[in-house]
Write a protein that binds this DNA or RNA. Structure first.
Length: 504
RNA sequence: CGGGCUGUAGCGAAGCCUGGUAUCGCGCUACACUGGGGGUGUAGAGAUCGUGGGUUCAAAUCCCGCCAGCCCGACCA
């Protein structure tokens, strides 16, 4: 017998975390690099996961009163120039369309022809184009609020890309709302970060910290940026979603004005909020192990895979009949408000290979059924989160399948929360701070550090230290953060604590 | 955009220093043996060695340019 590697994924997380991440994606067949620089091909398994995320989020958006719409991919360059901070933030990473036609170049190739009067920007985000449209839609306070979301792709010409975490083109949703008052817009901003936190924790099984960004970390043009931050297994932070209170910055730039009850003309208050395919990267780095991807059941394209085991055609008939009946019964069971999603894998490949195929793809539950099990009217059940499988009577299996999925979902959440808790420390001095983030090798991708909760007085003065240690302020947590203290670096009085961490 | 590493069959690699026209593992195809486990054997298919140029009788190998990927840095809503 040939020896199988100790883990299905090489290298392990401990050995080389960034490479492990790539290999999990490959092993699970989620996506691959494309011929286009920085852009990925999302494969069916990865895309069906994204569809499940979309569906859950979309339902939550609808439940909070939003509607979907669609706006153009191209933005006239002049639109982007209107809000100064916004230009500053995005100009560097915009893809620009300057021509509208190709013609033969005389050497068998093609060259751009037909220069555009005004270059078009491929949207890096749609505040400007949507704002320009809203300006036409809003005249009266009776037109407000506008609560719209769009599912779209955006392009940011990032210098360094990583699959799912930072790609040049990515899929996302962006909500853009307009309100008559500051209070109402701020409420919306809070409501949507709440939706994201709910989704992250209850669907992705990923604990997140809700907080606000410091001025230097804010969205360009925003008055306030709320974010959810999660800890990955290498103890780095990942920003998983943001909700921005844009104040009147964009409405002034784009003239979104309305007449209020008193007949006065006012600028409206806007918000925007988004999550992207980066959530898949977050999912991978939160739950996956050295055997590959691990899917939280609520988002898994398949909950249960049935693996029939037989030697010959005669056995096959019997086993398949049994397995199909089992599939039908399991499919009638409910988990988290939906029917249990079951598939039979009867491909003609070796059993071991088949098993690892599903392990690497993260299917929550594998059920193996062979002639011996059928005699006992039972099946072998293996949960992706446990190393052992156990024999279980069919009737028990059917009645507990929902509970098993529930257990996997909560185990994943608890495991992730435990990792975050045990790698979060409160730090009160610069010496401790330096020690916490010190690297032991040249390789800054090694696993170390975590979240440091620190009182701080002034963001600007910390920059040299943060730059030196490659640490950023992730957010000022919203909850349990009312006790004043002294700044860990300057000793000056400080109102709030922030999370400091290395980040993606 | 700077530094480092890399690009050879679908995938992973050896060969490159010391030029002579391509090797191994996995996978794939067929057959046989196996059968609660990514097994064994036999036979096969599959590569203009990332790309363009140069040096040479001869280039995967040496030289130059370009492209792409990964890691680090800068940048990052």
């Amino acid at each position: 017998m040939a020896k199988a590697p100790k883990t299905a994924i090489t290298p392990t997380r401990q050995e080389d975390y960034p490479e492990w991440f790539q290999q999990v994606i490959r092993g699970a067949d989620l996506a691959e690099n494309s011929p286009v620089r920085g852009c990925m091909v999302i494969k069916p398994w990865g895309y069906s996961l994204w569809e499940n995320m979309q569906r859950a989020l979309d339902d939550m958006f609808k439940a909070t009163g939003h509607q979907n719409a669609y706006f153009p991919l191209f933005i006239p360059m002049s639109f982007l120039e209107k809000e100064a901070e916004h230009v500053e933030g995005f100009a560097k990473e915009c893809a620009v369309v300057t021509h509208h036609r190709l013609e033969p170049n005389g050497e068998g190739g093609l060259r751009p022809a037909g220069p555009l009067e005004e270059p078009l920007i491929v949207r890096p985000t749609s505040e400007t184009i949507i704002g320009a449209t809203y300006a036409k839609w809003v005249q009266s306070y009776r037109d407000l609020p506008i609560l719209i979301n769009q599912w779209a792709n955006v392009v940011r010409w990032e210098l360094r890309t990583r699959m799912f975490l930072r790609t040049a083109e990515f899929l996302w949703q962006e909500g853009h709302t307009v309100h008559a008052t500051s209070e109402e817009a701020m409420e919306e901003t809070e409501r949507m970060i709440g939706v994201y936190a709910d989704f992250a924790e209850n669907w992705m099984a990923m604990p997140v910290i809700v907080g606000s960004k410091t001025p230097l970390e804010r969205f360009p043009g925003a008055v306030e940026t709320l974010a959810i931050e999660a800890m990955m297994q290498d103890h780095k932070a990942l920003q998983a979603g943001t909700s921005h209170f844009l104040g009147q910055n964009f409405s002034k730039a784009q003239e979104i004005k309305f007449q209020d009850q008193n007949g006065d003309i006012q600028f409206a208050w806007t918000t925007s909020w988004g999550v992207s395919t980066r959530l898949i990267g977050a999912l991978i780095m939160t739950h996956s192990d050295d055997d590959g991807f691990v899917l939280p059941p609520r988002l898994a394209p398949i909950h249960v895979v049935l693996l029939p085991i037989y030697r010959d055609e005669e056995q096959r008939g019997e086993v398949i009949r049994y397995v199909e009946a089992l599939r039908d019964e399991l499919s009638k069971q409910q988990y988290a408000g939906t029917a249990v999603r079951v598939e039979i894998d009867d491909r003609d490949i070796r059993g071991g290979e088949k098993k690892w195929y599903h392990v690497k793809r993260g299917v929550p539950i594998r059920i193996e059924v062979g002639p011996k099990d059928i005699e006992k009217d039972s099946a072998f059940v293996a949960m992706r989160t446990e190393s052992k499988s156990e024999s279980m009577p069919r009737t028990q299996l059917i009645s507990t399948i929902g509970d098993l999925l529930t257990k996997i979902q909560s185990d994943l959440y608890n495991r992730a929360l435990e990792l975050r808790t045990s790698n979060t420390v409160t730090i009160t001095t610069e010496a401790e701070f330096r020690k916490f983030f010190a690297t032991t090798t040249e390789d800054s991708s090694e696993i170390h550090g975590g979240f440091a909760m620190c009182h701080f007085a002034d963001e600007e003065s910390l920059q040299p230290l943060l730059k030196e240690l490659k640490v950023t302020i992730r957010c000022i947590p919203r909850d349990n953060n009312d006790t004043p203290g002294t700044c860990f670096a300057t000793g000056r009085p400080a109102e709030k604590m922030a999370i400091f961490a290395k980040a993606y």
